[in-house]
Design a protein around this nucleic acid. Sequence first.
DNA 1: CGGGTTTGACCGGCGC
DNA 2: GCGCCGGTCAAACCCG
Length: 440
Amino acid sequence: MDKGCGRLIAENSDRVGFFGFDLSPRLNQQTKVIMFPVNLSPADRKPMALGEVDFFSDKKRPIVDHTGLQLDAAVKDGISSDHVEDKLAKNELSQLQVAIQRMNSDNQKLRGMVTEVNNNYNALHLEFVELMQQQENSRSDRSEKELLRTKRIGREESPESDGLAPNKVPKLNPDQTPEANMRKARVSVRARSEAPMISDGCQWRKYGQKMAKGNPCPRGYYRCTMAVGCPVRKQVQRCAEDKTILITSYEGTHNHPLPQAAVAMASTTSAAANMLLCGSTTGTDGLLNTTFPARTILPYSSNMATISASAPFPTVTLDLTQPPNSLQQFQRTSPAQFKVPSPVPIPPMAQVFGSKFSGLQMSQDIESALPSQTEHHKSFTDTLSAATAAITADPNFTAALAAAITSVISGAHPNISDNTTNDNSNVNASTSNKITSSIQ
DNA sequence: CGGGTTTGACCGGCGC
DNA sequence: GCGCCGGTCAAACCCG
């Protein structure tokens, strides 16, 4: 105990007058206050451990220990503790009132922000839907023209003449057009399959194989061969942890008519890619900062959906490896990570308040806070269950898979985009903007 | 012979 | 600047 300067003794206090205390002269950020009975001889004074006090705290709150001693007031005024106590009680009360007022003010501001964000979201959602419809229409037009052109010139057309010269496609500037950007979005599907490749209704030609880092299984590279110059690629690789799981990643949009068996998958992957890219505009910090339906799907798919931020491309990943019956079970038993005691459904875009995001999860708390969503949630889960059942039963699962993806990405599930929230407690967004929503 | 696969080489991006 | 790595190319090869 330092006996030097700063030693203060409140011996006159009628309640705690037998206490004295030493202040360390080294008044830095943390100053130790050690108390001892002053009615003892100095030789018998033993320090009593009363903890450490931060005298440089901004709040300068009264320090009341178990003895009832008001340290700072006693030190400052040297007056009776009753008086000090009363004064500090009033002070504390006024401080609390100020704090409450401040909280109310903050609450009002936050409500305003939430409302504004929600409005922005709704407007952009509408815009997004319109864009999707426009693109679908234009794609249909292009496909018809392409079909006619293909029939006319047949296979005489060189790969370079279609504007998709090999090796040039990846050089597309992501900042150019949405269509160019489309090459940068992926839809990834995880499914259990013994087959080397899932059958999705399209024709593919393998153009490469590589050993990817961290996975003993090679990754196969395929391109669509149903039309000359179709930009669609896919990658097929087995999961390193579980080799029965086949991971298929789709990239790009078909520029040609598709057979019925491939339509659902193609439109779905295209929609997913479009959805991701529409919202992948990055701010200065790389955060997904536009109001964006992709994020709003996450709450409901969130136990099935995780968002990570480790890939160069925005990616929707559907994990369909869970047995059908485990879907609902999993959703109900997943750990609640996000404790929000709010009785009011938090607007979907509340997520944007998180500075980063990864591993979004819908908590049971949120679910319970959204009783009106229960049926929708259940039907959505049922859709996924059905899809998974079909997929696990038959690797030729295009329609079921597409249904599942569509349910997740397009907001087909009622109110998926509305009145939901998600866990942003583990939110993590890097500049890579990868979005992975996996269904488990 | 045509179409698909294999595989080593090449290229560009990125981190150090 | 260098090395690593993912993605692609293209010649060689295989197969029906």
